[in-house]
Design a protein around this nucleic acid. Structure first.
Lengths: 192, 192
DNA sequence: CACTGAGTTGAGCGATCGTTCAACTGAACA
DNA sequence: TGTTCAGTTGAACGATCGCTCAACTCAGTG
């Protein structure tokens, strides 16, 4: 197989493995075994596991954000925000949120991951801030703090997802969805 | 040294080690070496590292919540909430939030940690919900959703802390404090 | 004094990890 | 055909982990 194809194949499988087992538990052997290749091949394309891991997180985060952008493309801003609230909560088994929060957590000990997450978070905040600003514009109100509201919304999503991750906590998808939509009302209501 | 004293000493040192290195990186050897004891002693008091780890997280979380309760004892509810917002942000090096978010994250793979975190989160939510209800009462307004507001506030704190943990993200303590206080206004303003 | 048993030690076990490297394969090319 | 080299293998290495257990210490007791 040619170099670039093989490289992509490895990253894709690494994403699967990491989504399945979590960042801390995923190992090089999981990837190579799943692909049926030798361990040396992985290191032929990636200097170290940390590099592959960072690349996998980067690609996974990019795909998630692109998927959300596609989800709300051409949709009125306020409805787009509602859709995002639904999307946050509908993650089966919380696989993607687990990766997101896990990567955020590991970012202290891994400079590569810190870079990757910083960039991803910036994209994410910009997307939400843009929708909030557009929503305020569409509803005829002026707003001076779309950025602040976006930071709050994004942090709320992270926090709610983190709470949902703890089995036994009372936080369900339904409750989280309701809380998110209430927050949307709060943020947009003050501008009216 | 007597059994109970030794046990407490081990848990205390485990908390230090875990705060310093994170849950995933902390090891039994770190604790025994810091105490200057043999590795067997640790396992004499705790069946496994998972047990000691869970006990350490439980005690650390309890202490944090008790410290916050002491911080706001006898303080008017609304001012108490402001103090908590300040407290959230003033965590030097985010050591305690790092532990909190890390434990939340590890809770999927560790049933003991899941129990511990479920209990701690319940206490935490109750504390905030109580203050919000009391605040609404003191300010003469009725509120039907102190619980919801508490869940949002707690999730927002988690999310903001998680964002602050990523070095390079634009989130600073000052910004987080401002966003939290804005949220307090939002939550309490709607009741007025 | 001898005996007991809780407290403690630390070398070592088995497992697992990321990583290395000498060797092999096979398509491409002269 | 012989040569080359990117692609690939997988045994082996050193580090590190949680954990075990035979052995030791020593205050308390009869």
């Amino acid at each position: 197989m040619s170099g670039e194809d093989r490289r992509k194949q490895i990253v894709d499988k690494a994403i699967d493995v990491i989504l399945e087992k979590g960042l801390a538990q995923a190992a090089t052997r999981d990837v190579t075994r799943a692909l049926g290749v030798g361990s040396g091949l992985l290191h032929h394309y990636f200097p170290s596991w940390a590099d592959l891991r960072a690349e996998a997180v980067r690609l996974a985060a990019t795909r998630e954000i692109e998927a959300v952008k596609a989800l709300v493309d051409g949709v009125p801003a306020l409805e787009a925000l509602e859709r995002i609230a639904d999307w946050v909560v509908e993650d089966e088994d919380m696989r993607h949120w687990r990766l997101w929060l896990n990567a955020q957590d590991e970012a202290h000990r891994d400079a590569l991951l810190a870079e990757v997450m910083t960039a991803a978070m910036l994209d994410w905040h910009r997307l939400i801030a843009g929708l909030l600003a557009k929503g305020a514009e569409e509803s005829g109100a002026t707003t001076s703090d779309a950025d602040d509201a976006a930071l709050r919304l994004a942090a709320l999503m992270d926090g709610l997802a983190g709470t949902m991750l703890v089995k036994g906590s009372a936080m369900t998808a339904g409750t989280a969805r309701m809380l998110l939509k209430q927050q949307l009302s709060l943020e947009c209501g003050q501008q009216a």
